Simulated assay, not measured.
Amino acid sequence: MTKSGNKRVVVIGHINHDRIWRLTEPLRAGGRIAWSSRETRLGGGGYFTARRLLDLGHDVALLSNLMSDAHGEAALADLDAAGFDTRLIARRDGETEFADILLDPTGERTILSSERRLSRTFLLDEPVHADAFYVNAPKLPQTILASLESAPLVVSQFPLREGELRAADIMVGSKADLPGVSMADAWRRAQRLASERLTHLVMTDGPAAISIFDGRIEHTVTLDRTVSVPDTIGAGDSFSGALINALLSGADVVAASRIAGNDTTVWLERREAENRTEPAKSIS
């Protein structure tokens, strides 16, 4: 059941166990790099977007998978305790593989992921219904594709690797992931994936202006203010959650992008303040 006044959102994406190494200097070829702290926490594109939507008051179902070992059990318990609907999370035999994230003092990050972890697929027995779907996955089974076809709102992350055709109203990407690609070319790539249903492509650029393109006209949105923090992990995913929240509240995509960008600035500031005042936490 959807909470009164809020919307039900299904988030399709990975839940990762991120092991974050805070380096004392930037990476360099052949160097010996010291690290100041190491923290393990839940992460991944699916998790961060779902977490933002949950914090904004929505009924959020996670469609993902976790391993059946102690790490997976602990993560599932934490997600249940936080208030997520975890009934669509598949359990898989085997051991949890961690993603190592090297975070240097400037905020630059290097992510190390095994090919096996990146190739995880999603399982769904039969189509599901919700007020909105968010998709952060390249490959999707037919049951998920059917769910998207009948959904009133679908926001998809721009797949970095070859992706499955999927129904999507809005596609969100980062200009950093498509260096040198024009908005027109990015639009054509997005439309090949999302079909004629696609209405807008939203491209973020860190703290710089956000571009919104409908295939003909490009709108740019400048944030009210920007923030510089050493840890921007999950910022783009949090933006997607705030964007969906604004769209569900009735904002048009340009206004929703402005709201989401400013909301993400506040989110980054709040997390940085928490990191300064709290000791590093680890998940089991």
Rank of each mutant, 00 (worst) to 15 (best):
G107N: 05
V172G: 02
W35N: 06
T49V: 11
L223E: 02
L153C: 08
H200T: 09
D185M: 03
K175Q: 14
S282T: 12
V202I: 12
E162S: 07
A260D: 04
I15E: 06
A146H: 11
T40S: 09
T24S: 07
A151T: 12
D85Y: 01
T222R: 12
R91S: 13
V128S: 03
M183Y: 07
L248D: 01
G13E: 10
V135Q: 02
I212K: 04
T277S: 14
A235T: 09
L102Y: 14
D59Y: 08
V10G: 01
F98M: 08
V266L: 13
R161F: 02
L27A: 05
L123W: 10
R41D: 03
G241H: 07
I20G: 00
R161Q: 12
G234Q: 08
T220Q: 15
Q157T: 12
A77Y: 06
T277M: 10
R116Q: 15
T24D: 06
L243W: 09
P26C: 02
L56Y: 10
L140G: 01
F158M: 15
E95G: 00
K139H: 10
A251K: 03
A146E: 15
A190P: 00
L160R: 12
Y47I: 10
T110I: 12
S114Q: 15
P207C: 02
L63F: 02
R161L: 04
S195K: 10
V155Q: 06
L153W: 10
W267N: 01
I233S: 04
A184M: 05
G31R: 02
G57A: 09
G180D: 10
A74N: 11
R117A: 11
L66T: 05
V266D: 13
A77H: 12
V181F: 06
P279V: 14
S282K: 06
R38Q: 14
A184H: 12
G250Q: 03
L112P: 00
Q191R: 14
A75C: 11
R41S: 03
A256Y: 06
E274A: 13
D55Q: 15
A235F: 04
N136I: 05
D185Y: 03
V172N: 01
S147D: 03
P152L: 10
A168M: 03
L165M: 06
A82G: 00
L223P: 01
S156K: 13
L103G: 01
V202A: 01
P159C: 03
R52C: 04
I144M: 03
R52T: 15
A167G: 00
A99Y: 08
T143N: 14
G107S: 06
L118Y: 07
R32K: 15
A168I: 07
R87G: 07
R120I: 12
L178T: 14
D231H: 03
E162H: 07
S249A: 14
L23K: 08
T232F: 05
K175D: 09
N16E: 08
E108N: 11
A34R: 13
R38I: 15
M171R: 07
K3P: 00
N275V: 11
D93I: 10
R41M: 07
L102Q: 05
T264A: 05
P279C: 10
V229P: 00
G72R: 08
D104R: 04
L247P: 00
T2C: 00
Y134K: 01
R41T: 11
K281R: 13
R51Y: 11
V181A: 08
